[in-house]
Design a protein around this nucleic acid. Sequence first.
DNA 1: TTGTGTTTTATTGCCTCC
DNA 2: GGAGGCAATAAAACACAA
Length: 290
Amino acid sequence: MYGVLYFVWPCCSQTRIRSQLLHVLLLLSNIGVERLLKNFMVDSGPRSMLSFNDLQGMNGSKRLFFQPCDYDYDEMADGDLDEYLRHPEKKRRLTSDQVCFLERSFDEENKLEPDRKIQLAKDLGLSPRQVAVWFQNRRARWKTKQLEKDFEVLQSNFNSLTAEYETLLKEKDKLEVEVVALKEKLGMKEREAESSQLWNKLSQGPLHNPAGIDSASDEESSKLPVLASKQEHIRSSIFENDQSDLSQDEDDSLSKDSLVAASILAGQEYSNSGSFEFSGMDHAFWYWSY
DNA sequence: TTGTGTTTTATTGCCTCC
DNA sequence: GGAGGCAATAAAACACAA
C-alpha cells in the first residue's frame, strides 16, 4: 500500500486529488495518519524520521504538525505532508526542558495512561507517539540501571562471601595440620606404650609378674633397663650361690638383695620389717618359688 | 578534523490482555 | 483483533580523544 502511495503521490498534482487519496488510504488501512506516515517513511527510503515538534519551530506556528485530535487532511495534504514527503526532517533531540518535564512525570508514574499521554503531548508540544516512545525508552534505561544496581549488590555479596570462604579454608587447613600433629603424638605414645609392654615381657623372662608391669608408670618404665640388668645379675648370682660354698650370711644377704630387686621389678614393696607384703595366691606362689 | 564510542530517538516484531 | 508493552535493533546526535 505504501508503495502505491510512494508512486502515486508525486503524480497527484492537484490538492483535492491528494486529499482524496489520503482519505482512501486511511480508510483502507484503518490506521491513524501518524502511523501511516511513519510506515510510509520506513518503506519509502532512509529511516530519517520526522521531528514533529520541530516543525512547530520551522513554520513558527504553535500548532503541532499532527495533532491526533484535529487532523485537517485537506490542509495537511496540500502543504506540510508534501513538504514532509519531499524533505523529511532528521531526528532531533528533545529540549532539556522537555526532558525535565518528562523526567518529573516519569518519577511520578513510569507507566503512561492514554489520557496522561495526550496531556503530556499537549503540554510539551510533542506527538503522543513521541511521549509514548520516550516513556518506553526511559523504562528500558531504568531497567538497565536497576540491573546494574542489583549486579553491584550481588557482586558485593559475592566478594564478602568469597573472603569469608577463604578465611574458613585457611582455618580448616590450620586445624587439619593440628589434627595431624596430634595424631602423630598419639601414635608415638601408643608405640611407646607397646614397646614398653614388649620390653617388660622380654625383660621379665620366666619370672611371673603378679602385679603386672602394665600398671607401671612411665618413670618406672624408664628404670626397666637398669632393673633388668640388675635382675640378670641377681639371677646369675643366685645360680652361682646355689652351686658355690657361700656362707649362710652371704647367702642370706644375696637372697635378700635378690628378693628386693625382684620385688621392685614386680612393683612390690619390701617392708622394713624384712617381710614381703603380698596379696593373693600368685604372690604367695611367687614368694614360695624363691 | 576525524574516527570512535555512547546516548537518544524511533522502529519492528512479538507477546499479552481485554 | 486492536492496543499497548517490551526486547532488539537502527540510526542520528553527541562527546571526546588523537
